[in-house]
Nucleic acid binder design. Structure first.
Length: 571
RNA sequence: GUUCUUGUAGCUCAGCUGGAUAGAGCAGCAGUUUCCUAAACUGUGUGUCGGAGGUUCAAGUCCUCUCAAGAACACCA
């Protein structure tokens, strides 16, 4: 339908007796009216008022008289209060949309803007030995969706799970294990027990400053490669990964690399050396820092603690060096909560002092998202008030099962999983990333209205209609005029927008744009379905409607796939 | 205190890079299954777009100020 826009722009250009305004400019001004009664395209004449020294409504009126629509795709033109409204021949809209779809079919919406470029997506990055709660869900789900979206746009995409497997917290755990390890059997529910130990040692640290100091010393030992500490650390890590993989399997999330913070522990010295060489390191209160006040950041970035041990900023910097060399990335995005805004601002600034090519430092981007609260407040692993992802998913799955119990379906187990998990993923991708969210179980388990199951249901519906028909018609067998009613046109126009939606979603790193779009398509199909009998004796109209059903099916499936949601065969 | 983010219907949120009468879902109420799956569809809303100024032919959208909520602000990540 871009071709139609082009035609309109040309028509307008030819009608304007002023060469200062070119087609490109006009094309940018052309918009799609919200109200259908205002046509398919509209050209606001206000911007021309100054150039042409005429009132907008007069310009519109003149243009209307000067534009010759004979032999074009334009049915009629109306001039309404400064707007020039274009009504396009409906069958042309249908034709244009179908031809565009037919080129790609199953790959509909796929783009090539990223061809030859590589993007790294760091996400999930849970802390070892801590329960995977709903606070970690957003980064995992958003990151996975972005990974899919970039890939669909032609990028070579690499997913990184930057495990939180380092730091004083570990030393605390080791200290706790030393004290009470014998009381726990780590062969089952390891994470629950480890977090219990973590909770206990934290309480002790709060009571006794000496214990905290002991933990800091233990961290130094761990960093120094102390055998006992490293052995424990490895054990904890393996136990944790096993638990995380259970959830990643459920969510169908995969990582190309699990290199956590510890991996960079021996790569930090280089960061310090380069910064030192470039004269960027200063001593402050015993610590080595990079001052960033000239960059408008008041807080300095700590590179080395006063006791000589490392800090996470240094590890992130080492990771940037490593990734630039290993992956030669064009873009490296970090899907991490907004509470780390300052941290990434600092790290990205300091990265510019690491003698890296600008390509890399310009490609760094923090994709932040809002916080999740429980109705009773902030979640805290230490205090033990959190909702585990595993529990949430299981609850969602049993809810799906419950709804299905009276239906005769095969493999309800599988369907319940697809629907239950789809609902949770969808819920997390529905709103703009940045919004804070108070977790509401009822809302998460609501399967009616603008939800995952709703969109899945519509996708399944397209499948069963096609199944019942037993064939997918050929493009050439479609009579475009069958699809010119309001509900068909609306659906057709929406489907035609898919590529623009994907591009927009990628540009903004905002999967919710696709989520909302999928609801729009599903809703439009539902209305179309209710208004039109698809399967009928009339072969002409059946073919046309079946083809639109096929277009809807592919669009919904691809949209959901980008979000990381499966479509069941039946539900 | 400083910086960042958010503020749109009872609740949760859309609102494209300023454009025509600000939209959905949920909750509520009232309807729709001899007809391709009712996880559906139809109808039903008196909104100071947090407030005040300003820019513009045009502001929910841009600028300034202000109020409220959340977050961050040196050796946790």
């Amino acid at each position: 339908m871009d071709d139609i826009k082009e035609v309109i722009a040309k028509l307008i250009e030819n009608a304007i007796e002023n060469s200062e305004i070119n087609t490109q400019e006009i094309k940018e001004y052309i918009e799609i009216p919200k109200e259908e009664s205002n046509g398919d395209y509209a050209f606001p004449c206000f911007k021309l008022a100054k150039v042409l020294r005429q009132a907008p409504n007069q310009i519109a009126e003149n243009l209307k008289n000067n534009i010759i629509t004979d032999g074009t795709v334009i049915d009629k033109i109306e001039s309404v209060s400064g707007y020039l409204n274009f009504f396009v021949d409906k069958s042309q809209i249908v034709k244009s949309a179908i031809e565009k779809f037919d080129i790609q079919k199953k790959d509909y919406g796929k783009l090539d803007v990223g061809n030859g470029k590589r993007v790294l997506v760091e996400y999930s990055s849970p802390n070892i030995a801590k329960p995977f709660h709903i606070g970690h869900l957003k980064t995992t789900i958003i990151g996975n969706a972005l990974y899919n979206i970039y890939k669909y746009c032609g990028y070579e995409t690499i997913s990184l799970n930057h495990l939180g497997d380092y730091g004083t917290q570990f030393a605390k755990l080791i200290e706790g294990y030393k004290r009470w390890g014998k009381e726990y059997d780590l062969s089952t529910n390891a994470i629950d027990k480890l977090s219990e130990i973590y909770k206990r040692i934290n309480e002790l640290c709060e009571e006794d400053e000496n214990v905290l100091e002991e933990c800091r010393q233990t961290f130094k030992k761990l960093e120094g490669g102390d055998e006992y500490c490293v052995k424990l650390w490895n054990e904890f890590k393996e136990l944790s990964l096993k638990e995380f993989d259970k959830i990643y399997d459920l969510l169908n999330v995969k990582f190309d690399s699990y290199k956590g913070e510890a991996f960079y522990s021996d790569k930090m010295q280089e960061v310090i050396d380069i910064l030192e060489k470039n004269g960027k390191l200063t001593e402050s209160q015993g610590a080595k820092v990079v001052d960033l006040t000239d960059k408008g950041i008041k807080a300095p970035c700590i590179i080395q603690k006063s006791n000589g041990s490392s800090i996470y900023a240094t590890r992130d910097l080492a990771a940037i060096l490593y990734r630039a060399r290993t992956y030669d990335f064009d873009k490296c995005i970090y899907v991490v909560g907004e509470e780390q805004n300052l941290h990434f601002k600092q790290v990205f600034e300091v990265a510019k002092y690491l003698d890296l090519d600008e390509k890399y430092t310009n490609g760094l981007e923090h994709v932040s998202y809002g916080m999740i609260f429980l109705p009773e407040g902030k979640m805290s692993t230490r205090k033990g008030n959190f909702v585990k992802v595993e529990d949430l998913l299981n609850e969602s799955i049993s809810k799906a099962k419950e709804i299905m119990q009276d239906r005769s379906l095969e493999d309800k187990e599988k369907i319940a999983k697809q629907v239950g998990i789809g609902a949770v993923i969808f819920e997390d991708l529905k709103e703009s990333r940045i919004k804070n969210q108070i977790f509401d179980l009822n809302e998460a388990l609501n399967f009616n209205g603008e939800t995952g199951p709703y969109v899945q249901y519509m996708a399944v519906r397209t499948k069963s209609v096609l199944d019942k028909a037993g064939y997918v018609p050929n493009k050439d067998d479609v009579d475009f005029n069958v699809l010119t009613d309001d509900s068909s046109i609306k659906l057709m126009k929406l489907i035609n927008n898919f590529d623009k939606i994907i591009l927009n979603s990628m540009d903004k790193n905002e999967p919710s744009i696709i989520t909302r779009y999928s609801v729009d398509v599903a809703k439009a199909y539902s209305i179309f379905y209710n208004n039109n009998k698809i399967l009928s004796e009339d072969r002409e109209s059946q073919n046309a409607r079946l083809y639109l059903t096929y277009m809807t099916k592919i669009t919904l499936e691809n949209a959901l796939k980008l979000l990381g949601i499966e479509v069941p065969e039946k539900m």
